[in-house]
Computed example of a mutant assay.
Amino acid sequence: MEKHVVVILPHPDDESFGAAGSISHFRSQGIPVTYLCGTLGQMGRNMGSPTFANRETLPLIRKQELKNACKVLDMDLKMLGYRDKTIEFEDQMEIAQHLKGILEEIKPSLVITHYPNYAVHPDHNALGAAAIKAVELMDERPTVWAQAFARGFKKELGEPDVINDVSAYFEKKMDAILCHDSQAGGIIGPLKNYKELGEEVLQEAKERFGTEEFFTWQFSV
């Protein structure tokens, strides 16, 4: 059983779409989970139609949505304070040292992050690389689960070695995703009203969100 799990991802909603089921499973076992969220997602594209936000108000909205999601998932939240869409331009070692200091305080047994170069968004790739570097620098390294979802990643990386069936936590995951209302509506479409859908559509949704896959990162030394 894990001692403490730390999730390191760059945006509000990354935790809900990518790992909410696994987080819920850990919490059901009484294992503490802490989310180190990189940014406030202030450069998110969805401003609504009609417009509900602007560049000044969107980060406030997304921060509250993130707090709501973390409440649903019953996990602690720590904001890292980086700016959306700029992590790739930050000094990777500085971010790694920042993360290392936090990890050494928490002493997690497991870190969940993005797989560098296989996580689509530059922020995903950059923060994932910094998180892995942070763990590499530690004297006592936690296990790292890295999540990849770039098109065709399995052809290059093979099959993930951690495949979590989180279908038992489907509703919890959906509730967390729906906390991110400003962004999630455009991503999940009609599933926003998943409780009102027919059984066939609901089953498709469970298949879509019912598995979370990760690679266990292999350090060279």
Rank of each mutant, 00 (worst) to 15 (best):
F170S: 03
D165E: 02
I177Y: 05
E200V: 12
E200Y: 09
A53Y: 10
E2L: 12
S182R: 01
W145D: 02
P190Q: 07
F209C: 03
V6N: 01
E65S: 11
P32H: 13
F170C: 04
E171D: 15
A205R: 10
V6G: 01
E156D: 13
P10I: 00
P160Q: 14
Q203V: 08
C179E: 10
R27N: 07
R62I: 09
V166H: 04
A176P: 08
I31S: 07
D161P: 14
E159G: 00
I23M: 12
L40M: 09
A126W: 12
T34M: 06
P142G: 08
I102M: 15
G38K: 06
V5F: 05
H121K: 10
L77S: 10
Y169N: 04
E105S: 15
L99N: 11
A69L: 08
F153C: 08
K133G: 02
N54W: 09
F214M: 02
V6M: 00
D84I: 15
S220P: 05
I132G: 05
M79H: 14
K63G: 07
H4R: 12
N68W: 04
L73F: 14
Y82H: 14
P12K: 01
K195D: 01
A134N: 07
Q203Y: 11
G21A: 03
E136S: 12
A129G: 14
Q203P: 03
G128Y: 10
K206F: 09
G44S: 09
R62L: 10
V6K: 05
G21R: 00
H11W: 00
N125F: 08
K154I: 12
C37D: 03
D165R: 01
K192C: 03
